[in-house]
């Protein structure tokens, strides 16, 4: 004879508790860890690519703004004003849903790129973060003590040498705290990618919720993951800042 009833294993007990007694079903989140891992991958990819490309784009723009290059300055100001004055969501919708309205776009060689949600997201995010970063760098360049520039002039440096040797290294260091904020904003802003079908962290949470008709598990998991990422980034920047701001620290007597 086989035993009628066997004691439930620990794993089953946990599963049962999670499904029926606990307000949040942890097991179902854990079962989909692979989806959340891909989500983290997409979020990090989008944020990293936008920040790197957008940052590189913003450097010459910021220099042109800070040096008040005529005409170029006004054009950049307009670009920055539009991107900072409108919601990222609308910008993304305009690119992803909007561009397909024109036949010229649909027939062009760019269409395979422009109908892909990931490429659209990257394009929009790069332009968006470049606008914000331009303002950050411009402020940092303008905050450089004029004496430093004067000293460089007195040493006979050309305008290009002054910019690359004195102005930019100094300005980029000073921009670090504001820039770390921009990174957090970008991470926070990247969630709108989930509205154009990209499975980032929030996208994974939304899929989990709609698949099992849940109210909070997926969003809760996403919230915790985003918070962990923010924590790691802010900690990392503190260490980095300490290194790059060594010359600005008050001298120990």
């Amino acid at each position: 004879m086989e035993p009628e009833e066997r004691a439930p294993s620990l794993l089953e007990a946990i599963k049962d508790f999670s499904e029926h007694s606990s307000p949040v079903d942890f097991v179902i989140i854990a079962q989909h860890w692979e989806m959340f891992l891909t989500g983290i991958g997409y979020t990090l990819l989008i944020v990293a690519v936008s920040l790197i490309v957008g940052g590189a784009l913003s450097l010459p723009l910021a220099v042109a703004r800070a040096y008040r290059t005529p005409i170029v300055n006004q054009i950049i100001f307009g670009y920055v004003y539009v991107f900072r004055g409108t919601p990222l969501l609308v910008q993304l919708y305009l690119v992803y849903y909007g561009l397909g309205q024109f036949e010229a776009v649909r027939d062009s060689i760019f269409w395979p790129v422009l109908k892909d949600p990931l490429w659209c997201t990257l394009l929009t995010f790069v332009l968006n973060t470049a606008a914000y970063t331009t303002e950050i760098f411009r402020g940092a360049i303008e905050a450089i003590p004029y004496g430093e520039v004067e000293a460089a002039k007195a040493c006979g440096m050309s305008s290009f040498q002054r910019t690359t040797r004195i102005v930019l290294p100094n300005a980029l260091r000073r921009a670090l705290p504001a820039y770390s904020n921009e990174i957090i904003f970008m991470l926070h802003g990247s969630v709108v990618a989930s509205t154009v079908t990209i499975v980032d962290i929030l996208g994974a949470g939304r899929i989990l919720n709609s698949k099992y008709y849940l109210a909070y598990e997926g969003f809760l998991a996403a919230a915790v993951l985003y918070m962990l990422l923010v924590l790691i980034i802010t900690r990392g920047f503190k260490v980095w800042e300490k290194h790059w701001h060594a010359h600005l620290r008050p001298r120990e007597v």
Binding site: L202, Y226, M227
Partner: peptide
């Protein structure tokens, strides 16, 4: 710290769907 660590859309969905359920 909780609010500023989590993106607004995530919180919005969490509070809207989860809050209603709760």
């Amino acid at each position: 710290t909780l609010i500023r660590g989590v993106p607004d859309l995530v919180l919005m969905l969490l509070l809207f769907y989860g809050g209603q359920q709760l």
